[in-house]
Simulated scan of single mutants.
Amino acid sequence: MADSREHVLEGTRGTLVVREWPHERPRYVALVVHGYAEHAGRYGDLADVLVAHGAAVYGPDHVGHGRSAGERVVIEDFEDVVTDVHAVAEVAHAAHPGRPVVVIGHSMGGLIAARYAQRYGDGLAALVLSGPVIGAWETPGRLLAEAEAHGEVPDIPVNPAALSRDPEVGAAYAADPLVWHGPMKRPTLEAFLRTLETVAKGGDVGALPVLWLHGDDDRLVPLAGSRIGVERLSGGALTEHIHAGARHEVFHETDRDVVLGELLRFLDGVLAA
């Protein structure tokens, strides 16, 4: 596994811990935007592949996640998280001036990355969305309705088996002390609803190349709901790869080598252009 180092930034709501997988002379910068309840450290294998491909890779732990500050898994405003990711991009720009930047967002990170592209797309070379929370995602509304009916958000943690057909992925997730295994929090659910609407109304990303990767057996973020959002977000430069039988984390799936090959071919095309 490639060496990594940490940066500590002052984020919008406290200390932000950022992992960097460095490259001495990168062709490009990749910002990896992790999903709900997890942390950037789960993307070490992806970072290894990107570094070998010529990238300097940066991944922040979002507020309330991993080793960053904040009450666990509480995100009151995703606009603040987008601002935090932009602060990381500025660190990367300072270290590697003139290098093209791509953002790779998974799940909740796909929602953050989509909004990032709407706000800061002029500074991006490409956007990659993996199992993105975008479009029609019913989970927040359903959990909030149950909270209204019963007085609290139901404790329904992520089922590790829903992540990948590889049982080692689920076992590692279940044993990871930096992963949150408890219930979702009301402020975060409310923020999801607001930001899904904001992205839906925020317009497309124009000519920015977009790669969409999704498993057709994703039960956490179903394919059909994401398609609505991805097609609305894309300005027309959309490449999609839907993987038969794959679950939520396509970068950790049993056919991950195929997925990573698709990612690198897409990035090669972007960099060549």
Rank of each mutant, 00 (worst) to 15 (best):
residue 161 A to N: 15
residue 120 Y to C: 00
residue 176 D to L: 07
residue 160 P to W: 05
residue 122 D to E: 14
residue 137 W to T: 03
residue 144 L to A: 04
residue 172 A to W: 06
residue 170 G to F: 08
residue 97 P to T: 09
residue 116 Y to F: 13
residue 139 T to Q: 15
residue 179 V to I: 12
residue 119 R to M: 14
residue 140 P to N: 04
residue 99 R to V: 11
residue 145 A to T: 09
residue 119 R to N: 12
residue 123 G to A: 11
residue 111 L to A: 10
residue 104 I to K: 11
residue 135 G to R: 01
residue 180 W to N: 13
residue 170 G to W: 07
residue 111 L to C: 09
residue 110 G to A: 13
residue 121 G to I: 00
residue 127 L to C: 07
residue 124 L to N: 02
residue 147 A to K: 02
residue 127 L to I: 07
residue 165 R to C: 14
residue 151 G to M: 03
residue 114 A to W: 01
residue 145 A to K: 10
residue 122 D to P: 09
residue 146 E to P: 10
residue 165 R to K: 14
residue 122 D to A: 15
residue 162 A to C: 14
residue 99 R to G: 09
residue 193 L to C: 07
residue 181 H to L: 08
residue 176 D to S: 08
residue 189 L to Y: 03
residue 135 G to E: 01
residue 163 L to P: 00
residue 181 H to C: 08
residue 157 P to W: 03
residue 108 M to Q: 13
residue 107 S to V: 11
residue 126 A to V: 06
residue 140 P to L: 03
residue 191 A to I: 03
residue 120 Y to V: 04
residue 155 D to N: 10
residue 197 E to G: 13
residue 192 F to P: 01
residue 147 A to L: 02
residue 157 P to I: 01
residue 175 A to D: 13
residue 148 E to G: 10
residue 120 Y to R: 03
residue 111 L to W: 06
residue 108 M to H: 12
residue 125 A to N: 01
residue 124 L to S: 00
residue 139 T to A: 15
residue 191 A to L: 02
residue 143 L to D: 01
residue 118 Q to N: 10
residue 178 L to V: 11
residue 109 G to W: 08
residue 192 F to S: 00
residue 196 L to W: 02
residue 187 P to D: 04
residue 151 G to D: 04
residue 113 A to K: 06
residue 133 V to Q: 12
residue 183 P to V: 06
residue 177 P to T: 03
residue 185 K to H: 12
residue 135 G to P: 01
residue 98 G to W: 12
residue 191 A to S: 01
residue 123 G to Q: 08
residue 141 G to N: 09
residue 189 L to E: 00
residue 144 L to W: 00
residue 112 I to E: 05
residue 152 E to Y: 14
residue 101 V to Y: 06
residue 170 G to Y: 08
residue 138 E to G: 09
residue 179 V to D: 01
residue 184 M to C: 15
residue 186 R to D: 00
residue 159 N to V: 10
residue 133 V to P: 07
residue 173 Y to R: 11
residue 111 L to N: 05
residue 195 T to N: 12
residue 179 V to A: 08
residue 167 P to A: 06
residue 180 W to L: 12
residue 190 E to K: 07
residue 190 E to P: 04
residue 104 I to E: 11
residue 149 A to M: 07
residue 131 G to H: 05
residue 168 E to R: 15
residue 139 T to N: 15
residue 166 D to A: 10
residue 125 A to D: 03
residue 111 L to R: 05
residue 163 L to A: 03
residue 183 P to Q: 06
residue 170 G to S: 11
residue 165 R to W: 13
residue 142 R to F: 14
residue 143 L to I: 04
residue 136 A to G: 14
residue 149 A to T: 07
residue 141 G to Q: 10
residue 162 A to T: 15
residue 132 P to G: 09
residue 99 R to C: 13
residue 158 V to D: 06
residue 104 I to F: 15
residue 132 P to V: 09
residue 143 L to C: 03
residue 197 E to T: 13
residue 196 L to E: 02
residue 106 H to W: 15
residue 117 A to G: 10
residue 196 L to T: 02
residue 155 D to I: 04
residue 133 V to N: 09
residue 107 S to N: 12
residue 116 Y to A: 06
residue 119 R to S: 13
residue 163 L to Q: 00
